[in-house]
Nucleic acid binder design. Sequence first.
DNA 1: GTCTATAAAGAGATAGAC
DNA 2: GTCTATCTCTTTATAGAC
Lengths: 186, 186
Amino acid sequence: MALPTIDDDSLAASLFEVFRCRGYEGTSISLLSEVTGLKKSSLYHRFPAGKDDMAKAVVLYVSSQLHTYIIGPLLNDKQVPEQRFNTMLTTINSFYHEGKKNCLLNVLSLGEKKKEISELLNKDYSDWLDALIKLAKDAGLSKKEAKIRSEHFLIAIQGALVIQRLINNSQTFQNAMEYEEKLFFK
Amino acid sequence: MALPTIDDDSLAASLFEVFRCRGYEGTSISLLSEVTGLKKSSLYHRFPAGKDDMAKAVVLYVSSQLHTYIIGPLLNDKQVPEQRFNTMLTTINSFYHEGKKNCLLNVLSLGEKKKEISELLNKDYSDWLDALIKLAKDAGLSKKEAKIRSEHFLIAIQGALVIQRLINNSQTFQNAMEYEEKLFFK
DNA sequence: GTCTATAAAGAGATAGAC
DNA sequence: GTCTATCTCTTTATAGAC
């Protein structure tokens, strides 16, 4: 009883790869159709509100990944903060393909704002930030310093992704992350 | 003898505002026509190669601004490094409208690469980086440390712009820049 | 739930008058 | 150098058969 159709998660994963590479405006339904193997009308059947709906599904998919693989482990009290941070670095290195892939937080917040998508992205950022702040406090930092360093780290991720894409140097992201790790616990 | 038409620099400035807000794919010729007050065919008259040509003109325009108002003053030996850095902060704060406007280095390096534009953006980044490295060495840092801190600072600019756009908090960029200034000279 | 076919609007781009 | 008018292709989206 083979599945006659691609399941929602795999579908979202395929859409995600296109949106993260090309941004919202740069992504066409035709391209999504090619990549997923579903005809355009099938995509509309599964996402009745159209392209916005597809982007939203992608954001929800990534949000779920973020909470499962990054935020969850960040809050795992059974490991010391340094270990948890290091686990996060490994995960994001893989998630961003060593810095060669973009972050939705950047590419989908460009241009005309779709309010609902902005709010979802915002919430993800905020959740990630809160988890980092908690970790930093666990590591002994003051509340204020924990907040500053956590914001700084998330800024560094986004910036390093932009710069690596710009100069096309495959080491930029990883080097930056190693540097940030030292700064975070210094 | 009033000018019958908008001059090249003002035109590029208008195009720039659209491209920086909406990115390459999000910018349509119709919109550029509205914003500049020139009909579409007039735009094509001035940019025969079309949209790519317009984007290229924007990059060249911004590159000129970057060298005049940022890189030049960074290399001005008559001021101490701290003063020069501070001048740069004031300038970029204005250039990015206190962090509310995007950087071309981010928005134009998305999606399908136009090779020529990528190379121009790359050169601008590289020039800016070199000027910062020289300044850092003037401030007494080792060559290696100068390079690391300069890269880190340019990463922080891009990251702070992304995060401010994302969370729509008008203080993010300025706070980040103040923090980075301390890190740079520490 | 997927498909073929098609509609309607918008995109980038060009021709030719003034 | 700018304009009106138009072309062609692609876009988002829908209708209806299977």
